[in-house]
């Protein structure tokens, strides 16, 4: 499997960059979208040397909803169609600041939730028109249950996960797949401030899991796998108990 046409939104994120490298080595064609033109250019140069058939770039601030359509159109035109789309942009909001600043909370929700849904809905229409393609979106284990430590982020990711679940049902054509990616703790610049323990994974490890899940046309993937039983357990805790613990 090579020579595929791949669009990545949020391409300078650590997980997206590691994933793009795996596709570049396979000889795929990539269109990278990120906020910072210079940084996305650096990623593109790297992928070209690694063996990508071609790499083109575009800039987009996902909070600028009005610009979504043009970006997707230009990627489609440049690639001549979309075989795989990975939506990987995101921020990790400061939960306590979001509690005292509602405007900030809404802005963060827009980036991690609404913008992702807006992009997914436009791309879904493209895939539907083509009759084929994979839409893979990075959600999070944080979306499985709201927890005091990061429920603004969690609620945005919950919205994304629920949206993708419905989208997957709607687009149940044989050649179309919608993949929800739920990484656990990943050691990236987004989480630089955290102390790292045994549950933390490297972006390269998550990237291999993403490519495998896309190849196998999976619906939902927890990365690494052990987050599935962990989140199953956390979801199973009765609310009466959950409200009294801190996670």
């Amino acid at each position: 499997m090579n020579g595929r046409r791949i669009l990545i939104v949020g391409a300078t994120s650590a997980i997206a960059e590691a994933t793009a490298r795996l596709y570049a080595v396979r000889g795929d064609a990539l269109f990278l979208v990120a906020r910072d033109a210079r940084r996305v250019q650096a990623v593109a140069e790297d992928l070209r040397v690694r063996g990508a058939a071609s790499v083109q770039t575009g800039t987009l601030d996902v909070a600028d909803f009005a610009a979504h359509a043009d970006t997707i159109e230009s990627a489609c035109a440049a690639l001549g169609g979309l075989d795989i789309v990975l939506i990987a942009h995101g921020t990790l909001p400061d939960q306590s600041r979001c509690e005292s600043d509602t405007d900030l909370a809404l802005r963060e929700f827009a980036i991690n939730g609404t913008a992702t849904i807006a992009l997914a809905s436009r791309i879904a229409r493209k895939l539907e028109a083509q009759g084929s393609g994979t839409l893979a979106v990075i959600s999070s284990v944080a979306g499985d249950r709201g927890r005091a430590s990061n429920y603004l982020y969690g609620s945005a990711k919950a919205a994304v996960s629920a949206y993708l679940s419905g989208l997957r049902q709607r687009l149940s054509a044989p050649d179309i797949n919608v993949l929800t990616i739920k990484p656990g703790f990943v050691d990236t610049p987004m989480t630089a401030a955290f102390r790292k323990g045994a549950l933390w994974a490297k972006p390269e490890q998550i990237a291999r899991g993403i490519v495998r899940a896309i190849d196998r046309r999976r619906g939902v993937v927890y990365l690494p796998w052990f987050w599935r039983p962990i989140m199953f357990t956390i979801r199973a805790i009765p609310e009466s108990l959950f409200r009294r613990i801190r996670l």
């Binding site: 650590a14 990623v43 790297d46 040397v49």
Partner: peptide, 9 residues
């Protein structure tokens, strides 16, 4: 170690 990109070959 995060500066691990190729630039040109």
């Amino acid at each position: 170690r995060g500066l691990d990109r190729f630039i040109d070959f």
